[in-house]
């Protein structure tokens, strides 16, 4: 049997600072993960962290990472990154005619990956993206926005504006009202717990179907392969049955959101 725990090493080709505490790293290899899936990235001597793929399948492998602790603060300074995966489930966009991706804060990378995948299959017209951050300076991928708006309906909002900002102000769930796609669209939600709760509520209120809402769950993850026991929510291990999971499957779980 293969040693699933042993990471292989990838060369990092580029590092971009997105915001004061968020950066994007690009590997010198192709992404074998689907949008929504994640890899375990490691810093030798420090540890591992689950990080979602931020680029489309088959493109250069990209991750966008927020510096919150020991591993995430050190990844950006590496030349070679330890990596294993991809793990978990992806966004099931192929099963739906229309998709609305809703991302809050550092939830945006898997939606970026989704966008690239759908573009690469020529289905950008079936996708709308709603993205919110706390302030304009917390927005990542600013340089890509121009490109994206050419092909999709991209709505962006911030909780608190500053002098330069002339876009939407307010919380992400409210953006859902600006969607043009039908109420039969699948809604893919990812972000901080409170944002997800409110987005799901809003989507249901607006008449989107519960069994077409997919959420991405964040749990402490260590193995990524359903054996270490850290990531359970009820009978599911999020690293296997998630992180992308149909809302109707878990809606009654009392430990769904923090």
């Amino acid at each position: 049997m293969e040693n699933e725990y042993r990471p292989h090493t990838l060369k990092m080709s580029k590092m971009t600072e997105e915001t004061p505490d968020v950066y994007t790293i690009e590997m010198d290899s192709k992404n074998e993960g689907r949008a929504g899936q994640f890899y375990m990235l490691s810093v030798p001597g420090v540890g591992e962290a689950p990080i979602s793929v931020a680029s489309g399948f088959g493109r250069n492998l990209i991750f966008t990472i927020r510096d919150v602790g020991s591993v995430t603060s050190k990844l950006k300074n590496l030349q070679f990154v330890g990596i294993r995966g991809p793990y978990g489930t992806g966004w099931p966009w192929k099963e739906y005619d229309e998709v609305i991706g809703v991302a809050g804060g550092i939830g945006i990378p898997p939606i970026r990956s989704l966008l690239e995948e759908m573009m690469d299959s020529g289905r950008q017209q079936d996708l709308e993206v709603m993205y919110g951050a706390r302030t304009p300076s917390d927005l990542v991928y600013k340089k890509d926005f121009g490109d994206w708006t050419k092909s999709i309906n991209l709505q962006i909002t911030v909780d608190r504006a500053n002098a330069e900002w002339n876009g939407n102000v307010g919380f992400v769930p409210a953006l859902l009202r600006k969607a043009h796609l039908s109420r039969m669209a699948a809604v893919f939600v990812i972000g901080p717990p409170l944002m997800m709760i409110n987005t799901v509520k809003e989507a249901l209120k607006l008449g989107y179907r519960e069994d077409r809402i997919f959420i991405s769950l964040e749990r402490r993850m260590e193995c990524g392969i359903g054996v270490c026991g850290h990531c359970n929510i009820g009978e599911h291990y999020v690293c296997e049955s998630g992180p992308i999971i149909n809302y109707s499957r878990v809606r009654n779980d009392k430990e769904l959101f923090l």
Binding site: G47, E222, C223, V227, C228, G229
Partner: peptide
């Protein structure tokens, strides 16, 4: 009980 912790 099979749960474990991974660390460097």
């Amino acid at each position: 009980c099979y749960c474990f912790d991974l660390y460097d």
